[in-house]
Design a protein around this nucleic acid. Structure first.
Lengths: 230, 230
DNA sequence: CTCGCAATTATCCAGCGGGTTAATTAAAAA
DNA sequence: TTTTTAATTAACCCGCTGGATAATTGCGAG
């Protein structure tokens, strides 16, 4: 029994292994579908194309996911689930307020930069008025750990006098997401209008710093004077 | 000859007046197409539906605009043109720096709030990677007067020491647009995730103030010390 | 009045694409 | 081995929709 290629251990089952595996097949469909939906939208994505790229028959998609729309929901669930996981790895609690805010900003920016397909998917879902996210038990139940983390950072910062007491966690999260998502989602129309490069490393680095600065200057307390308004 | 309704002057030509008017027909198609594209996207929009709502035949759409894609481009041109016009009415030059920045923020926010279809259209065009905006001579040539206005405000503010010298007009415009557009474009996924109302008058008012504050705090100079960096 | 042209309509068509019907086959159970 | 069940496939169906063909009609010019 000679192994022709010593590198790759010869497997018992040749070629078409991995079939008849419910979970694996579903996962593969889901991954390809994610790419297709993110690329072409709910209507633009094509069931035949998904099947072809996943190396299966179209019928199988409907066998597991019933309809294109339910497949889209499953894709959304997967994508949001991954973000949630990433957010859990953020440990802001140990940092000082300013460092925590800056780290939060950079993490969020980097995440969106690294996952443009996710950003596109969210944009697509918004075009559909959040119809699918609403229909999903899993998604409406899913908590976003990042909100709790932000709240803790704010509480600490406020008690130390480093952060303004009026700052609200949700508003902050919205502000940061808006800034961070825009750089990916509205890239094309912005670039076309202003001939402004948004994808080069230098432009991205600059924008990252800019957003971090915007966020920190927004939350930090004004040390200058106690009578700002008068 | 009694007029049943004294209000509405009886017109000579009954019912199907207003046809055989090239410009008017085109404008009507464009308006309906704008609504349909903003509602359903490039693929979702239906030529038959546009024709029906415009009270014409589908053939007429292709007679004037050749293809669905060219119609979409024409719609984009119209929509961006309107924004450009609105921007010209902004007179920031006369205002003091802080007032100008706040007014700019409020104007931008209000514009997007008042024109959600426009925001949706831009999102849709970005999903298509700005393919159409690039193809349009008119759009790639179209200047955005608001950039010049921002530059003038910044110059004035910097010379008065009210605005930080590092602030760049394009970055500022990007920041403001991101914040302002997000409130409309990502409404649905955000609301679904956080059960956070974004459409009520009170929420909108709050967000408007928040964005204005973010922007001003971002651009204003730190009066506290002259040696910020050292 | 009528001629010519441009605006408009009625009708058709072909391909695409989501979804289905029914047969097949791999693997687990007996 | 046989049976059973579930995963997978092949082939089909049919409504929808962008676009095309060709006929028609209103209007302005002469």
């Amino acid at each position: 029994m000679k192994t022709v290629s010593a590198r790759r251990p010869v497997e018992n089952k040749p070629a078409k292994v991995r079939r008849r595996d419910r979970e694996k097949t579903k996962a593969e469909i889901l991954q390809i579908a994610f790419e297709e939906f993110a690329e072409s939208g709910l209507l633009g994505a094509n069931a035949d194309a998904i099947a072809a790229k996943a190396g299966i028959t179209k019928r199988l998609i409907f066998y597991y996911f019933n309809s294109k729309e339910e497949l889209f929901i499953a894709v959304l669930e997967m994508a949001y689930g991954k973000m949630r996981l990433a957010e859990e790895d953020l440990h802001l609690a140990t940092l000082e307020p300013e460092a925590a805010i800056r780290r939060l900003a950079e993490f969020t920016f980097d995440f969106h930069q690294a996952n443009p397909e996710f950003v596109r998917l969210v944009a697509i879902e918004n075009i559909h008025r959040g119809r699918h996210i609403q229909r999903s038990e899993k998604l409406t139940q899913m908590t976003r750990p990042i909100i709790g983390q932000i709240e803790r950072v704010l509480a600490k910062g406020k008690s130390l006098g480093a952060i303004r007491p009026e700052i609200d966690a949700h508003e902050l999260h919205m502000t940061l997401n808006a800034l961070s998502i825009f750089s990916v989602a509205n890239r094309h129309t912005f670039e076309a209008q202003f001939r402004w490069d948004m994808t080069s490393p230098s432009a991205t680095t600059r924008r990252r710093a800019e957003i971090t600065e915007v966020l920190w200057r927004y939350v930090r307390s004004d040390e200058r004077s106690a009578t700002v308004d008068q």
